[in-house]
Structures are given as structure tokens and as C-alpha cells.
Simulated assay, not measured.
Amino acid sequence: MDEQLAERMLEVVRATPPGSVITYGDVAARAGSLSPRLAGWVLSQLSDESVPWHRVVRADGTPAPHLLVEQSARLAAEGVPMSGGRVDLRRYRDH
């Protein structure tokens, strides 16, 4: 694992403002990787609560099924609602 790449990915997530979301693909691209799956893996290894992992969703605006309840609650607390189990990326995606 490229530790510098992983740290860049975490920095991308840390830079995502409250009230916004990004996709795993966004995280990868902004960190200089072609792999959204690697971004997901890096986030899955987190033990650091300073990284707002809940602001990262799939390309279709959905969270991973096992994160749905907690992620939707955290996003709702930041003013990002889910409708039909997904975030409206056109409205809430951080560009």
C-alpha cells in the first residue's frame, strides 16, 4: 500500500465540507489514483474519527448497505438528506 496515496485520500475526505458529499471516484481522482475501490478500502481501514467518512458515497449517491443507517443520520445532521436511500449528487456533491 502506498502510504502517501492513502494519506492524500484521507486529506481529500477531510477537506470535504459539512453539507457536501463526494464519491469514492472523486476521492481517488483528487488524490491521484484511478481506483475508487482503493479509496473505499482506505476508508474501511479507518480508526481516526477526524476523517468524515460519512461524506463519501458511491457514484450513484448511495452508501454501502452496512453503513446506511449511521451514514444517513450523520449526513442528515449536516443538512444532507437521503431520498430513496441516496443523496442527490447534483445538489450536494462538492466540486
Rank of each mutant, 00 (worst) to 15 (best):
L5M: 07
V80I: 08
R14M: 06
L89W: 05
G40I: 01
S72L: 03
V42Y: 03
A6P: 02
V42F: 01
E7A: 08
V21M: 10
H66Q: 12
E7I: 02
R58H: 11
E7G: 04
L34D: 12
A31C: 10
A28C: 04
R58D: 07
G32C: 05
R8D: 09
L34H: 07
S47Q: 14
A73P: 09
L10Y: 05
A59V: 11
E7P: 12
H66A: 11
D94C: 14
A64S: 12
P18L: 05
R55V: 05
G19K: 06
L89C: 08
S33A: 03
P36C: 01
S72N: 11
P63R: 00
A15V: 09
D2C: 04
A39G: 06
G32H: 07
R86I: 02
H54W: 15
D26S: 10
E49L: 13
L89P: 14
S33T: 02
G25W: 00
R93I: 04
S20V: 04
P17N: 02
Q71C: 13
Q4G: 10
V69E: 15
L43P: 12
L5F: 00
P65K: 01
A59Y: 10
V21H: 08
G32Y: 05
S47M: 10
H54F: 14
S20G: 06
D88K: 00
M1F: 05
E78Y: 00
D94F: 14
Y24A: 11
M9W: 04
E70V: 13
D88L: 03
L75T: 08
G85H: 00
A59Q: 12
S50W: 04
T62M: 09
S20Q: 14
R8S: 08
S44N: 13
H95K: 11
E3H: 10
V12N: 08
L34Y: 01
R86Y: 02
V80K: 07
D2V: 05
L38Q: 07
Q45H: 10
V12C: 08
S33P: 01
D2S: 08
T62V: 02
V51R: 08
T23K: 06
A6C: 10
G61S: 07
P18W: 00
D94H: 15
E11D: 15
P18Q: 12
E11Y: 00
Q45S: 11
E78A: 03
R8M: 03
E3F: 02
V80Y: 07
G84I: 03
E78P: 13
I22L: 13
V27E: 06
D48W: 05
A31S: 10
D26C: 09
H66I: 09
G40D: 05
E49P: 15
L38E: 06
A59C: 07
L34P: 03
H66S: 14
G61P: 15
L5D: 04
R86P: 13
P18F: 00
L75N: 12
P17A: 01
A31K: 05
Q45T: 13
W41C: 00
G32N: 08
G61T: 06
S47Y: 04
R90D: 15
V56W: 02
V27T: 09
M1D: 15
Q45P: 15
L5Y: 02
A28V: 03
D48Q: 11
G19F: 00
D2N: 15
E70A: 14
H54V: 09
P18Y: 00
V56A: 05
